[in-house]
C-alpha cells in the first residue's frame, strides 16, 4: 500500500520533458559541463533515469541547481557535491571508488584474473598427451621419409600442414 501511494505521489508530480531550452546556459562550455554532470546523476523520483534525461520536476530543479552552481564558479566536483549534500550518494550513478565500493569496482578484474588462473591450472592439471605433440625434429623427419620410401605402395603423405588441419575437426564429430 505504501509503495503504491509513493508511486501515486510520484506520478502526480507535474511532468515536463528532460532538458528544456529555458534551462540551458548561454556559455556552451559551461552548458557542456552541466550536461556531463547531470548525465551521471540519478533522478530520485523516476529511480533509473538520469537527471539529464528525466522529465520529472525534481530533475528540473536539480539541473537548475547544478547550472547555478557552475555559473557561480563551482568546479564540477563542487557542483556534484552540492547535490550529494542534499540527496546523498544515492544520486551518483557512478559510485565513488572508496572502501565500501572496492569490491564493486575491482571484482570484475579480480574475477577475470582468478578465472583465467583457474583455467590455466585446470588445463595444466590434465594429462599432457595431446596438449603438446611436439613437431617432428629433423632426425624424425628423415626417418619418416625413409620409411615412406621403403613402402612405395603408400601415397607420399606429407607431414601434416596447416591446410590439412580442418580434417582434424572431423575427429570430433559425433
Amino acid at each position: 500500500m505504501r509503495a503504491l501511494l509513493l508511486v501515486l505521489l510520484l506520478l502526480l508530480a507535474p511532468r515536463a520533458f528532460a532538458v528544456e531550452p529555458s534551462e540551458r546556459l548561454a556559455d556552451p562550455a559551461l552548458e557542456a559541463r552541466a550536461r556531463s554532470i547531470t548525465a551521471e546523476l540519478r533522478c530520485l523520483v523516476c529511480q533509473n533515469e538520469s537527471v539529464d534525461e528525466s522529465g520529472a520536476d525534481l530533475a528540473h530543479d536539480i539541473r537548475v541547481l547544478v547550472r547555478d552552481r557552475l555559473k557561480a564558479g563551482d568546479t564540477n566536483a563542487q557542483a556534484r557535491q552540492a547535490v550529494v549534500d542534499r540527496y546523498g550518494q544515492f544520486v551518483l550513478l557512478r559510485p565513488r571508488v572508496e572502501p565500501a565500493t572496492y569490491v564493486l569496482w575491482f571484482a570484475p578484474v579480480a574475477l577475470l584474473v582468478v578465472g583465467f588462473g583457474a583455467t590455466v591450472v585446470w588445463l595444466r592439471g590434465r594429462p599432457a598427451s595431446i596438449a603438446a605433440p611436439s613437431p617432428l625434429d629433423d632426425a624424425e623427419r628423415t626417418r619418416l621419409d625413409a620409411m615412406l620410401r621403403e613402402d612405395a605402395s603408400l601415397p607420399a603423405v606429407p607431414v601434416p600442414t596447416r591446410d590439412s588441419q580442418p580434417a582434424l575437426a572431423q575427429d570430433g564429430e559425433a
Binding site: A13, L44, L65, R86, Y87
Partner: peptide
C-alpha cells in the same frame, strides 16, 4: 519555487 525543498533534499511531497 521549491528552493527550500531542494535544500532539504525533498524528493516528493509529503
Amino acid at each position: 519555487e521549491g528552493h527550500v525543498g531542494l535544500d532539504f533534499g525533498v524528493y516528493g511531497v509529503p
